[in-house]
Simulated scan of single mutants.
Amino acid sequence: MSARRPCPSDLSDARWKLIEPVLAAWRFERRARALDIGRPPEHGLREIMNAILYVDRAGVQWRYLPHDFPPWETIYGYFAKWQKDGVFAQLNGLLRDLVRQQQGRNAEPSAGVIDAQSVKSAASVPAGSQGTDAGKKIVGRKRSIITDTLGLLFAVLVTAAGVQDSTAGTQLLDQVAADHPRLRKVWVDGGHRKYLVEHAAALGIDMETVERTPGTRAFTPFPKRWTVERTYGWLMLHRRLVRDCDTLPARSEALIHLAMTDLMARRLTGENTISWRTPTSPDQTRITG
């Protein structure tokens, strides 16, 4: 079989070196637990990850994967297992720590930003897991995230769009406070309720609400909070995330973790991220910050 022509989303040797140990350890543990080892895996982990990255970046359905990748059933099977075993969240956490250290920061954060984004959902999304964001007039799902002050992802929660920001924020705070005890400051927008501020205080976190300046209509970056808005811009470089297409919210969360893993791996290796945002250079633009 002839070698597959590389795709722009494929992992370079440098980026593969960053994530290979996590995937190799996962496969070793799975095979060690098996009663019958059987024949060796037919497909390499790098090619499987390349196919998953292709779906995330190009926005295609799993069944529409090009035929020179391994069978889509195999690719989706690995994706589902990695999501269930927390591999994507583990990769995101590992690379986030490396990026923070590269920037001269402590690997453990002391401050974060919470925000929510409502997106339309595809026909494949069950009606029971959708909702309506009355403020933004969007029927679909809501992505609530908490990032550090560099815009790097700590946690994500995908819910129906009708879920209140403060309700999702409470779950995010509980998760991040348990995993990152050094966190002591969080910024949110004016859409979050008072009880979330009180819940944060009970966890030992000072939550500050950043309000919009009265009379402001056009988009205006807010101090401290603009980094999380930039994070959503980074995520939109992955076409699979422009609309929520996944049946299970947990699979949507995995694709968000994967997108951030892809972006951080490129930052660590100094590689460019392909984007349509630079009209004078349609091939590449650098994700910085």
Rank of each mutant, 00 (worst) to 15 (best):
P41R: 06
I52K: 03
D174V: 01
G128V: 07
T231M: 12
H257E: 09
L150W: 04
Q164A: 13
Q164C: 03
I75C: 13
E208K: 02
A200L: 00
R96I: 02
Y64R: 14
D244P: 08
Q90V: 13
W82R: 00
G289S: 11
V113H: 03
V163K: 03
S281N: 15
A160S: 15
R239Y: 02
L152S: 02
M1R: 13
T280A: 10
W72A: 07
G131I: 08
P249F: 04
W226G: 02
E229K: 08
G169F: 02
R217F: 06
R96A: 05
F154E: 04
T149C: 13
G233E: 01
A14R: 06
I114E: 05
V139Y: 15
P41D: 03
E42H: 14
A51D: 10
M236F: 12
R251Q: 13
R46G: 03
N106S: 15
V22A: 09
H238R: 12
L235E: 11
R141S: 04
T167V: 13
R143K: 03
C245W: 15
A3W: 11
K224W: 12
A25K: 14
R33E: 13
D179A: 15
A177H: 15
G135V: 05
G112L: 02
R5E: 15
W62R: 02
L173Y: 04
K81Q: 07
P221N: 03
V242Q: 15
Q171T: 11
R266Q: 08
L241V: 09
L150M: 09
S281G: 09
A161W: 06
E73W: 10
V186W: 01
G135S: 10
K120S: 09
